[in-house]
């Protein structure tokens, strides 16, 4: 099956087997290892990537369904002027990273949510920020700092 889609700003065409999962396309075929395989059943959010503006779990998403769409992974957040995205800067400032395994997923979910809030001119409450991260688990128990960092994106 032939798939054409945009990954981190670049169009690619790739032949894949129909049952391939998006996470395996990203990590094994495209060799982008920043997207993390955690629980692989949609609980932990470590594999979160952005498809057409929405955060999704790439472990439960068929690769063929990104055909014609735009996928952003953690590797797609850097550019020449800014090696780190604002969400990543805030996570560093607030010490929101311990082992780092959940961080790419946390960043992608927070980015998708903050893009929507900014587009709609909304400043979310702390409760809303927490809710936006409900699909991401951190096993180093660092939630307070992660939520602080996600909230600081709006300040």
């Amino acid at each position: 099956m032939i798939l054409t889609f945009k990954i981190n700003g670049e169009w690619v065409t790739q032949e894949i087997k129909p049952s391939l999962l998006l996470i395996d396309l990203i990590r094994d075929v495209l060799q982008l290892k920043g997207t993390k395989p955690g629980c692989l059943e949609g609980e932990c959010g470590a594999c979160s990537v952005i498809v057409n503006g929405d955060a999704i779990n790439s472990c439960m998403y068929l690769a063929i369904n990104v055909d014609g769409k735009e996928v952003t992974t953690i590797e797609g957040l850097e550019n020449n002027e800014n090696p780190l995205h604002q969400v990543q800067e805030k996570m560093l400032e607030h010490g929101a990273v311990q082992c780092g395994f959940c961080s790419p997923g946390m960043v992608m979910t927070t980015k998708a949510y903050s893009d929507k809030c900014i587009a709609e001119g909304i400043t979310p409450t702390r409760e809303e920020v927490k809710k936006s991260l409900e699909g991401n688990l951190c096993r180093c128990t660092g939630y307070a700092k992660i939520i602080d960092a996600a909230e600081a994106v709006y300040k």
């Binding site: 959010g45 979160s48 955060a55 779990n57 439960m60 979910t109 949510y113 409900e134 699909g135 991401n136």
Partner: peptide, 9 residues
């Protein structure tokens, strides 16, 4: 229902 990532699909 579940989480943002799941609600999106």
């Amino acid at each position: 229902l579940a989480s943002t990532q799941i609600r999106n699909v």
